[in-house]
Design a protein around this nucleic acid. Sequence first.
DNA 1: ATTAATCCTATCAATTTAGTAGGGATTACA
DNA 2: TGTAATCCCTACTAAATTGATAGGATTAAT
Lengths: 138, 138
Amino acid sequence: MLSKKTKYGLKALTYIARSIGDTPIQVSEIAKSEQIPQKFLEGILLTLRKSGILGSKKGKHGGYYLRSEPAEIKMTDVMRVLEGPIAMVPCVSLNFYEKCDDCPDEDKCSVNKLMIQVRDNTLKVFRNTTLADLSQID
Amino acid sequence: MLSKKTKYGLKALTYIARSIGDTPIQVSEIAKSEQIPQKFLEGILLTLRKSGILGSKKGKHGGYYLRSEPAEIKMTDVMRVLEGPIAMVPCVSLNFYEKCDDCPDEDKCSVNKLMIQVRDNTLKVFRNTTLADLSQID
DNA sequence: ATTAATCCTATCAATTTAGTAGGGATTACA
DNA sequence: TGTAATCCCTACTAAATTGATAGGATTAAT
């Protein structure tokens, strides 16, 4: 299951990407428009800022803005920041690899092989999708 | 993350598929061989039996057996029984659909569109993989 | 009968999730 | 220079989920 954190984060990023203009976007505005608890969203945007995806401006008339063009912001990066590893098991994770306690031999593990396929296909989607794609208005 | 339940379930199914012969396989044997807590595994195999994937024989010399040929047991079915919905959000689930509280319009939701792609790609893997594939010894 | 299995229900500790609370630090602007 | 608006940070909490464990009821072979 996708966590609320990730869902809210994606919606917020989309909202920011769609807001053309120079001024940073405030948390309160996003929260209201996207129906997200404001305090919860604050924490999420903070995470996105710390990861380098968002920038922020403090104080009156402050807010958040994208640090790159929407077309440059890949879902692989966003998802890893918000949701964590893309793989369903640590033993097939590229960025967060860990060996399983059980499982004497990874190469012979049926779960491992299946989950590598799932990972590769999910990765393909995330690598191929940018914030610009999410923000398309149709 | 894949739950231990699913992981153990897949390993157990693989184990049973590999055990050629007529006699049913006992939980204790699987638990020992695959390093799975026996009582926990009991519950998992029970679930698989109730879903129709496994059959069982009670009493002395009892155990579990597959109700179809490994090549007929699709991962879509197994995963749905063990892990639940394949989709990452209920609003893109084929078998467990639910509308989101937030989200006035699904068609315009960026998360929705992304998650449909992920679902379709994951589904492709699971539809294409059977227990026979998992059980291949190489 | 005895033994060996599955079956069933209840309970539990640890972790994660989804938030809430309260205030600190910084900035714009009157 | 004061004040309001805004992000920033830490701590707390309730509910749900996960990964088990415990104890026995039921069933079947010998």
